[in-house]
């Protein structure tokens, strides 16, 4: 992938995000935020590669730190939104 191809992906994703997120009602803004938050933990993929295959000790150590932080973000974010959303749907049907 070249820089320009990545940039194309970035711009198109921004438009998709804009179209979807503007349709989300205020009611769901808090769970949206913590769910989106969990998605931003996608940086975990990068952390995994760096931690697992780091060619120097320093890179491996940094990778470990990054894996811990990103996993907190992913697991915590999804769980918090799940708990919140299950409260919405209890009587929200």
């Amino acid at each position: 992938m070249t820089f320009v191809e990545n940039l194309t992906l970035f711009v198109l994703s921004a438009f998709v995000g804009y179209e979807i997120i503007t349709k989300i009602p205020t009611n769901l803004h808090t769970p949206l935020m913590s769910g989106a938050n969990a998605i931003s933990g996608i940086t975990l993929l990068g952390s995994v590669v760096v931690a697992g295959s780091g060619s120097t000790t320093l890179a491996t150590a940094l990778g470990f730190v990054a894996v811990v932080m990103a996993t907190i973000n992913v697991i915590g974010g999804y769980l918090v939104s799940h708990f919140m959303l299950s409260q919405f749907s209890q009587r929200g049907r």
Binding site: M1, A14, I39, S40, G46, V49
Partner: peptide, 26 residues
């Protein structure tokens, strides 16, 4: 996360990161 996707040349990081960026910005 999206810019880290540029660093690693990783498409899903760019897609996911940008979605979150857009959501937070809105």
């Amino acid at each position: 996360a999206a810019t880290t996707g540029f660093v690693l040349d990783n498409t899903v990081l760019i897609i996911a990161g940008t979605l979150v960026g857009a959501s937070g910005m809105i």
